[in-house]
Design a binder for these strands. Sequence first.
DNA 1: CTGTATCCTTGAGGATACTG
DNA 2: CAGTATCCTCAAGGATACAG
Lengths: 130, 130
Amino acid sequence: MSQGNSGVSVTARQARACTVREALDRVGGKWSIGILIAASHGPIRFTELERQVAGISRRMLTLTLRNLERDGLLHRHVYPTVPPKVEYTATPMARELYESLVALTEWAERHRTAITAARAAYDREHAKVE
Amino acid sequence: MSQGNSGVSVTARQARACTVREALDRVGGKWSIGILIAASHGPIRFTELERQVAGISRRMLTLTLRNLERDGLLHRHVYPTVPPKVEYTATPMARELYESLVALTEWAERHRTAITAARAAYDREHAKVE
DNA sequence: CTGTATCCTTGAGGATACTG
DNA sequence: CAGTATCCTCAAGGATACAG
C-alpha cells in the first residue's frame, strides 16, 4: 500500500476498494474456494464434490455450483444418460483466479502466528476491565 | 492451479482451501477493505473514516475497527483530550495484505467483462425455460 | 468526538425429505 | 445420481437514540 498514495484522491482509493470487493464477492462464499480447488484438476462429479468438500450441505453445493457456473468459473457438462451424470470443470479464468489467491495464502501463512498473538494480547487486554 | 496437482492428495488440496479461507475471513467483511485502505496512508480519525467509507453505519464502523484492531491489522491511538481524539493506522502487516490483494484486483479487472458476459449468457439461457 | 446500546431486517447457510 | 423444495436458525448488517 506504500505511502506513495499521497497523490491519489480519496475517491480513487475507495474505487480500488470496490474492485477488490468485486473479486472477493466471487470467492467470498463459505464454499466457493473448496469447490473451485476440487474442480481445478479435471472434471469432477456432483457426488464426488460432496465427498471432497467436507461439511457442505447438498443445498449449498448446488447453489454454489450454480453461482460459479453463472460467473463463468465452472463449466457444467451433462451426459444424457440414466441415471444422470454431470461433470464440473474449472475454467481457465478460475485457474487464474486461484493463482492470484496464492499471494493471499502466503500472507496468511506468514502472519498466522502474529495474528494469533495479536488476538490473544487484545483479549487479555480487554478481559481485565471485565 | 496448474494440473501439476495430480500428485497431491485430496486432503492436502482442501487444506490449502482452508488457508485461503483463513485469509479471506480477515478481510471478507463488507467494510474491512475500505477501512484498511483509508487507514493505510497515515493516521485517520473516526469521523473521517465515517466520511470516506461511504455508506457505512456507525455501528459497523466500530465493530469492524475493533476486529481489525484485534487481528493486529490496525493500531488505535487515543489522545486523552476532551473531546476525545482517536487515530487509526494500518500496521505493516495490513499493508502487506493489501499488496497481496493486488493480484486479486488485477484478476477482477482482467475478467470483468468476461464475467458480465458469462452472467448475461447464463441468465438468457435460463430465462427461456421460465 | 467517539463511541455504546437497542431493536430490527435480511440473507447465508444447514437439515433433510422427496423426485425424475 | 443429481438435484429441488421446504422449513429453520443464526449472524451480519442497518438505523438511530443516547452517553462520557
